[in-house]
Simulated assay, not measured.
Amino acid sequence: MTLTWRKSSHSDNLGGNCVEVADLGPWRKSRRSDDQGGACIEVGALPGMVGMRDSKDPDGPKVVLSRGDFAALVNVLKG
Rank of each mutant, 00 (worst) to 15 (best):
M1T: 04
M1K: 01
M1R: 01
T2K: 05
L3M: 10
L3P: 00
L3F: 08
T4C: 08
T4D: 13
T4I: 11
W5G: 09
W5N: 11
W5I: 03
R6T: 12
S8V: 03
S8N: 08
S9L: 08
S9V: 08
S9E: 10
H10V: 07
H10W: 14
H10M: 13
H10L: 15
S11A: 14
S11I: 03
S11G: 07
D12S: 15
N13S: 11
N13H: 10
N13M: 02
L14F: 14
G15E: 06
G16I: 09
G16T: 08
N17I: 11
C18L: 05
C18F: 05
C18P: 06
V19E: 12
V19T: 15
V21P: 00
A22H: 09
A22T: 13
A22R: 14
L24K: 04
L24P: 11
L24D: 15
G25R: 02
G25K: 03
P26H: 04
W27S: 02
W27T: 05
R28N: 06
K29L: 11
R31W: 09
R32I: 00
D34G: 11
D34S: 10
D35C: 03
D35S: 07
G37T: 07
G37I: 03
G38I: 09
G38R: 07
A39S: 09
A39G: 06
C40S: 09
C40Y: 04
C40Q: 06
C40E: 05
I41G: 09
I41V: 15
I41N: 11
I41C: 14
E42W: 06
E42G: 03
E42R: 01
E42I: 02
E42P: 04
V43H: 11
V43D: 07
V43F: 08
G44L: 02
G44K: 01
L46A: 03
L46K: 01
L46I: 03
L46D: 02
G48I: 02
G48Q: 02
G48W: 01
M49H: 09
M49Y: 08
M49A: 13
G51Y: 02
G51C: 03
G51I: 03
G51R: 00
M52S: 15
R53H: 08
R53E: 01
R53T: 04
D54K: 02
S55Q: 05
S55E: 05
K56R: 14
K56T: 05
K56E: 05
K56M: 10
K56Y: 05
D57Y: 07
D57F: 10
P58N: 04
P58Q: 03
P58L: 05
D59P: 00
G60V: 10
P61H: 04
P61T: 01
P61M: 02
K62C: 14
K62S: 15
K62Q: 14
K62M: 12
V63A: 12
V63Y: 04
V64Y: 08
V64P: 01
L65P: 01
L65S: 01
R67K: 12
R67E: 15
G68Q: 10
D69S: 13
F70G: 05
A71V: 02
A71C: 01
A72R: 12
A72T: 13
L73D: 06
L73A: 15
V74Q: 12
N75F: 12
N75Y: 13
V76M: 13
V76W: 15
G79H: 06
